[in-house]
Write a protein that binds this DNA or RNA. Structure first.
Lengths: 535, 535
DNA sequence: TTCTAATTTAATGTT
DNA sequence: AACATTAAATTAGT
């Protein structure tokens, strides 16, 4: 009855038209089987030992003696050294680093993308494919596990970082100091906006580094890591507003622009598995807005954000005013922020971010919902809510955290300039072709958004002076010969739009598939002068 | 480095359209009512194994008395359990056994046939269809692989069993002892004849088992395995004649009937995947001719046969006379055996074997050509031809195999009775309705054929006495309730004529589609008393 | 033992 | 139906 495809009728498949040739996928292309042992006659299924994936074997020596050339451990595959049995190639540590990065960007790369990766890393495509498969399986297992745990996690437990303590996340940000993760979903600076696709993907991570006394926004885009650090000392004011239930908007008002970093991956040069370090660089936000606009809006876990802000109040210097969390959970009731509250998203979309409209709109609506919540009313922090100190495990939390100095009265920032000055400011440094000043103006229609939008004077001076602008680096500087460097995280989420927007992979580079028009901005290149990551 | 081709070209597959957003969901498929299906609750990936095995596991007892209920591993539980995404059902071991059998008969069953199978096995039709698809893919892969390997095989290598060492073949015959395959195409015993459709299908396999000191004819028909074993010691004489170039006819003259076996498949009783064993049984040849006619004619590879015969000479007991290979390659010159030499095929055809006349006639003409070759002249074995011992690899051949007791002089069998006695003999046990005594008489026109045709006395005693006749087993004894067991390999090749001969499936049973009139013989049933396969 | 590379199988989607 | 591809499950190797 419910036959699924007509399909009946016997097939006169005399064709055996073998070999699409192109595919090669497969199951072992290259069964070069001089004598591969059919192995046990027990069952035909059992003896897959035959030469499936020969080649590759990254010789083990490179584990210890790392030689950059390890990238292509098997380039001269014809060595014939391999007897037969050699199954199980090992992925080298540096290969692993990159694989993990690629994975964090796109868990299911297309065949074409896999091929790129394979070329870059000197792996067989089959290997790469299998690696991703297994990695996906592992990931699913892991976050299935963590999820299962999360469900079991008592909701009353203190808002420390998730018990899960995502190791891959910490590997991603590779900070040497302990950090406290702040789950977040959305970061907005001016018209520049970054949306996290899912918490699991870690494309947007906020965290606090107590040791270095700074807040950090980490962004993972196109396989590369970006971050900006905000020293506690330049945070002049914070605001907190409840948005959706459980979710809050924290606004940080700075006295100076943050410091920008870019991940530098030295492919196992000399020895040791691929050194990744943070290199200081120029503002990589679109239009360098983060240099000009000193207000940062972060949407994330209400309790965690509240806790972080409260902590600020305790530890940061004198002029910090904690505007405090407000816990009136009435998200739908206050239409203070209408849809127009987020006009910048429209601007972003106008820039060509149209792929996956379904997801986009979904996220957008979610975001709007966030902003339709409580307006930015300032309440004093309810002391009744007592959260323990949020600390990274393995991190000895500072015992005395200056138990909340008396919050002084709210004092608005007088040094803010008008919106008009803002527009003039950044139009004077037209570094990004994709820059859209209009969006900026548009945004200013809402008072909450424009309030701290413009800023003048001293901050401007700080901007890209000693630090390289992305465009200035030579293209040949990339790690791989293959049109390498990532585009800066201009905006939006890193969507690997399986795009078929044509064969753009050759020109766009590593993480660039699907970037679309956004990638018209010149790629950021690594810059490694004396500036190294401080710590 | 031909491994990943297409490397050079710039991946023109912009088409590699990955999920186009919308389809990603695709959960809507929901192609079936929540009925059967093993349905592993998706989340707990680890457990499906236990679920399937435990649910199905035919306990020990029902291995002997195959319970029909095992057919539906999930029938009872099917109710509410399958909540969510019913993914990845697993085919149970016993289902698998039967699927493999069906597959061996017909790789591409029609939709109707699939439906039968699905019903029998308690699978969804969709599952069955997919299983066959995947199985075909696997088969293609496999024999593509083996073929590629076979081509590499040096043709100059000694006529040992092919280096290919067809694992599937060995799986098919599942002998515990090492064996030496004798490629062959045609086996004739009296009017009973078995033609191999192609070597690849393994529907007729001859092999030598040195350990057990016997020759074996293995037949795969209708998904079931049959074999008869001929102990070296009962081979009183052999003949060899060249037939077509490279092909020879070996005749074996026995002192007793061979021993008959039937494959018994115990569907994974208790644990372990489906135990297949050889059960002794009654003569399954048409009219039990193999019990009465002690001459076996085997056509196969000349060199291999010659080698085997020569080996006999060395290892077998006294009264064996090797009539020897004659290597006069003059196939066309001796019309000693005319077309009338093979009247039995006509008889066979008269019995209704008319399907696929194209193939039949083709084979027939080939066979005739074989017999028009050198007449059965007996030459001494040319010692100049020295073949190394044919042994299965990985088999430590027994050093001392009763080093041939002193061969006594050839003594013709005096106890053989006339043809008339023969007819009376087997008419006294009219077990096979389809038995055709006429054919027998007909056959006797040829001296070579009639020489050992009749036999009496002791051999008769050996016949189906302690061994079950196929008919004697109760029909309910089958594993499936559905007219289960195979017909004996009455004659001819196992042709799965996608028959559409109408809905005969309900009565004929598992492998029976397309059997046509031949299936009028009652099916052989499994018999499992104390007799187990010896080894 | 755990982890991971590789294999096998059921299923899906595409053509 | 073939074909490619994948998720799920399993098998091994270190």
């Amino acid at each position: 009855m419910g036959d699924y495809s007509g399909d009946d009728d016997d097939a006169p498949h005399a064709n055996s038209g073998r070999d699409g040739a192109q595919n090669a996928i497969a199951l072992e292309e290259e069964y070069d089987p001089p004598e591969s042992s059919v192995s046990s006659p027990t069952s035909m299924a059992k003896s897959p030992t035959d030469g499936s994936s020969s080649a590759v074997s990254p010789s083990q020596d490179e584990a210890s003696s790392p030689d950059v050339s390890s990238r292509r451990p098997s380039s001269a595959k014809s060595t014939a050294s391999d007897k037969e049995k050699r199954k199980r190639s090992r992925v080298t540590p540096d290969q692993l680093v990159h694989l993990e990065r690629f994975f964090s960007v796109d868990r299911s790369p297309t065949a074409a993308r896999r091929r790129e990766i394979s070329d870059m890393l000197g792996m067989q495509e089959r290997q790469t494919q299998i690696w991703f498969q297994n990695r996906r399986a592992k990931a699913k297992l892991l976050d299935g596990k963590s999820k299962g745990r999360a469900e079991v996690t008592p909701p009353n437990s203190p808002p420390e970082l998730r018990p899960g303590y995502d190791a891959s996340l910490h590997n991603l940000i590779h900070e040497n100091d302990p950090v406290t993760i702040i789950p977040c979903s959305d970061l907005t600076i001016g018209t520049w906006r970054r949306i996290s696709t899912s918490l699991a993907k870690h494309d947007l991570v906020a965290y606090v580094c107590e040791n270095r006394r700074c807040l950090v926004w980490f962004i993972h885009s196109s396989g590369y890591g970006f971050k900006m650090e905000i020293p506690f000392d330049i945070i002049v004011e914070t605001e907190f507003t409840n948005a959706a239930p459980g979710s809050g908007l924290a606004s940080f008002f700075l006295s100076q622009p943050p410091t920008f970093y870019l991940e530098d991956v030295a492919p196992a040069n000399g020895h040791g598995p691929a050194v990744r370090s943070w290199k200081r660089c120029a503002d990589w936000t679109e239009g360098m807005q983060a240099t000009k606009i000193l207000r940062h809006d972060l949407i994330g876990s209400a309790v965690q954000l509240a806790h972080v802000l409260r902590n600020f109040q305790a530890t940061s210097s004198a002029d910090i005013r904690l505007r405090s969390p407000s816990y009136n959970m009435r998200p739908e009731q206050s239409p203070a922020l209408s849809v127009e509250a987020m006009p910048r998203t429209l601007a972003n979309e106008a820039q060509g971010w149209s792929e996956r409209p379904d997801v986009l709109s979904a996220l957008d609506s979610r975001k709007r919902a966030s902003f339709t919540g409580q307006p930015l009313v300032l309440h004093p922090a309810p002391n009744s809510v007592d959260y323990s100190v949020v600390e990274d495990q393995s991190h000895p939390s500072h015992p005395s955290q200056h138990p909340s100095p008396a919050p002084s009265a709210y004092q608005p920032y007088s040094h803010m300039s008008s919106a008009s000055s803002t527009s003039s400011t950044y139009s004077s440094t037209p570094l990004y072709p994709s820059e859209v000043p209009d969006a900026h103006h548009h945004r200013q229609q809402h008072p909450h958004m424009m309030e701290y939008t413009g800023m003048s004077g001293p901050q401007r001076m700080y901007t890209p002076q000693g630090y390289p602008m992305p465009q200035s680096a030579p293209a040949s500087h990339s790690q791989f010969g293959v049109a390498p460097t990532p585009s800066p995280p201009i905006l939006t989420t890193p969507f690997h739009s399986r795009s078929e927007l044509n064969g753009m992979h050759s020109s766009v580079g590593i993480g660039g598939h699907g970037g679309g028009p956004l990638l018209s901005a010149p790629p950021i290149m690594h810059y490694d002068d004396g500036l190294d990551d401080r710590r």
